[in-house]
């Protein structure tokens, strides 16, 4: 049985189409990522799957249960970590955990094995009010609370947003370990670089899924050659390349600009050389998820 099956989900709020024809499945034991910026519709989709919102059209099942008809059973079986930090700030770490364990008809001890890894990292602060924890710690506690009843499916809505790179890395390592325990996970993130940490991802933008595949396949799908270009004055370089008629796309990526062309690279080189850029470097490079995302966004914008 597939843990999550989503079929042709539509949802609108007034005039805004929040979700358009969303379909995907999450397989047994899979870590599935929803990658997209704020406002892409990720949270709405999470709320539909966790039975908090009703879709206008389409159906979905979680762990074989229908999200509308069987909402009570689903609520007993899933773990959900909403986008905003949602623990009781005035309750201590321990109190929060015990509270959530009890309302799910279980105890911390019963499923301690599952959360031990994570809980041990925050255990030194167990008497501290949750509101006084650092961002990374809060996320760990929230994850513990979502896991404490040993859910059959785990929903994590932007667990790493606003968290520093170190805590983000640790968080993803924890997710990998949970995956090994066989829990299917649906996770969303606006950080493109986190896509490669998922088994499969859906790239979502403006309420539409642009592509679903493994990160490797998405990158391999990017057929155009990409050139990494840099010079001493990056702003002037960017301006000149944007003005160049052979340029297909040109965006900053780290210390380089990623450039795709309609013409050959030699023509572009000549154009830049004529503009006297100092320390000019042009080399071939490979695409990343973000390149693919930008490309898909452009295609989406063109079709609208």
């Amino acid at each position: 049985m597939q843990p999550i099956v989503v079929q042709n989900i539509h949802k609108r709020f007034g005039d805004v189409k929040a979700l358009r024809n969303i379909s995907f499945t999450v397989e047994e034991g899979e870590l599935f990522g929803l990658i997209g910026p704020d406002g892409a519709g990720k949270s709405t989709l999470f709320r539909i799957l966790t039975t908090l919102l009703l879709a206008d059209e389409g159906t979905a099942t979680v762990n074989g249960l229908h999200v509308v008809k069987d909402y009570r059973s689903i609520r007993r079986q899933v773990g959900y970590m909403p986008g905003r930090f949602s623990l009781y700030q005035d309750l201590s770490v321990e109190e929060n955990l015990h509270f959530f364990a009890t309302i799910f008809h279980t105890s911390v001890e019963e499923n301690y094995e599952l959360i031990r890894d994570i809980y041990e990292q925050i255990a030194p602060f167990k008497k501290r009010p949750a509101g006084k924890l650092s961002g990374g710690m809060k996320q760990k506690l929230a994850l513990c609370c979502a896991l404490v009843h040993k859910p059959a499916v785990l929903f994590l809505d932007e667990p790493t947003t606003g968290v520093d790179p170190v805590s983000r890395k640790e968080f993803w390592e924890m997710l990998q370990r949970l995956k090994q325990k066989g829990i299917p996970i649906l996770v969303s993130t606006p950080y493109m670089d986190e896509a490669v940490l998922c088994d499969r991802v859906a790239l979502i933008q403006k309420g539409e899924i642009m592509q679903i595949n493994t990160p490797a396949a998405i990158i391999a799908d990017f057929k155009k050659p990409i050139w990494a270009v840099r010079a001493r004055n990056m702003f002037h370089l960017l301006r000149d390349l944007r003005a160049y008629e052979g340029t297909d796309s040109c965006y900053a990526f780290g210390e380089y600009l990623h450039l795709t062309l309609h013409t050959g690279i030699e023509d572009a080189k000549a154009w830049l050389t004529a503009r006297h850029h100092e320390d000019l470097v042009i080399q071939s490079t490979t695409a990343g998820i973000e390149d693919a995302f930008i490309r898909l966004m452009q295609e989406q914008n063109e079709t609208v």
Partner: peptide, 13 residues
């Protein structure tokens, strides 16, 4: 406001 209501609703309570 806190968002805890979301978690409470998605629980057997």
């Amino acid at each position: 406001e806190l968002g805890t209501m979301e978690i409470l609703l998605v629980s057997p309570l």
